[in-house]
Design a binder for these strands. Structure first.
Lengths: 244, 244
DNA sequence: CCCTTCCCTGTACGCCGTACGGACCGACCA
DNA sequence: TGGTCGGTCCGTACGGCGTACAGGGAAGGG
């Protein structure tokens, strides 16, 4: 062996990185369905099985791909002073990363592992939440609840996008779209079940080409969540002050 | 044709329903990976391609399966008077449905369509949010933000569960688990990057067998979100009162 | 009686992930 | 210097997937 262990692993990491970035590029461009090991190998100009020299399985590859996306979620230091601004900035960046790489949301990680960039992201977030002076459990709850909201928003936004895509460019009014090839829905609408949806869909008819209401956006829910957290923090501080 | 169109479609719907329930049962028992059209046909005692007589594609099948889960999210009438209690009840039921059928979260819908039970679920939720007397846009934002939180929570809880499963029964302390086969993480920990995570993982060592902190739970985040919404509603009412 | 219309079936195609055995090649040790 | 050995790359092959397609068979309508 000519190289020291460090050099060797560095060389290996290099190859790994090339494979992963090529895979990310492919998934970004053509979706995760187009990402097969054969196709990826073709793209890299190597034989089908060659990537397996550097990556244990497609599952691990997807895990590594997700970690490169996690790197994009990292906020450049220095972080904003205000905890609320900092948390919001991270949430925004996370959302942007998911929007740039929607395939992250198309397949759930099968055997997820803690990878470096994901850990960096968590470290950064914990650092901010710590400023609130809450108990460790509450701090974690704050962090996770924001994470959950962001993931949920992005997941639903992704589903919405797929729905729009699947409809194609031809316009269809909302009621027709809802009931079109689904007799169950049509029957329910006729029977007067779903009155609110029927009314809303009827109103959307004129304003909106498709039966899908415009997205109400990422910010309001995040604001409410942060409001609730802030109020909870204020309450905790009051109690602490009162007990002294 | 011997049967009237209605009878015919009813008969067809019956067969469809059998297929879908069998598919749900299989996915519940062995996960979505075990659900192949061949396996499903075997389970039903028919030839491989027979299910395709009643279901256009595996995609549509998954869509129908998801809709049976949506049925479980429906709250029995009468709904609670208090809007907050009602929204919380729906959120709880939704979470329970996802926990009972985690495969819902394992694969994103490819070409989602509005199905009857999903629409019923939405109708029920809108009915509650309407009581708040907010604008249509704000109402939708309230509804969707709660939905997003629930989906996000369940998705992360699912990932957590997979992580625990993949670790197997043998206990491993947190630090070792974090850095185990991943040299990048080990290097970062050694280099003093990730100080907070290192400290937390070190503390978890004794209390917790795995490197995964216990779930902080569904309720706190939901409460914060509802708190924020409630404060926003109160503010809106104040403004309305003041302008009169 | 035949004919249409469904429902069902078996076969077959082109993908997929990946196990495996062998070829090459540079680096170390005798 | 020659042998060996670890690491990289390759080709082939296997089992499984979703599903297109062409045919069979029963059942009701003319």
């Amino acid at each position: 062996m000519s190289v020291t262990p460090t050099e060797q692993s560095a060389q290996k990491a290099c190859k790994r990185a090339e494979i992963v970035t090529a895979a990310v590029r492919l998934a970004d461009a053509e979706g995760v369905d187009a990402l097969s090991m054969r196709r990826l190998a073709d793209e890299l100009g190597v034989a089908t099985m060659t990537p397996y020299t550097h990556v244990a399985s497609k599952d691990e590859l997807l895990d590594l791909m997700r970690d490169t996306v996690a790197a994009e979620m990292l906020l450049p230091e220095p972080l904003p002073e205000d905890w609320r601004a900092a948390l919001r900035a991270i949430a925004d960046r996370t959302r942007a990363a998911f929007e740039a790489h929607p395939w992250c949301l198309d397949t759930a990680p099968r055997r997820p592992r803690a990878r470096i960039n994901r850990l960096r992201h968590v470290e950064q977030s914990i650092g901010i939440v710590r400023r609130l002076g809450l108990s460790p459990e509450t701090s974690r709850a704050v962090l996770l609840s924001i994470d959950d909201y962001v993931i949920g928003y992005c997941t639903r936004a992704r589903a919405r996008q797929r729905m729009l895509d699947s409809l194609g460019p031809e316009g269809k009014d909302a009621l027709r779209h809802l009931s079109d090839p689904d007799p169950e829905v049509a029957a329910a609408l006729d029977a007067g079940e779903l009155p609110i949806i029927k009314k809303i869909a009827g109103q959307l008819d004129r304003q909106h080409p498709f039966g899908i209401p415009p997205d109400s956006g990422f910010e309001p829910g995040l604001d409410w969540l942060l409001d609730g957290i802030e109020a909870s923090v204020a309450r905790a501080e009051d109690e602490k002050a009162a007990s002294h």
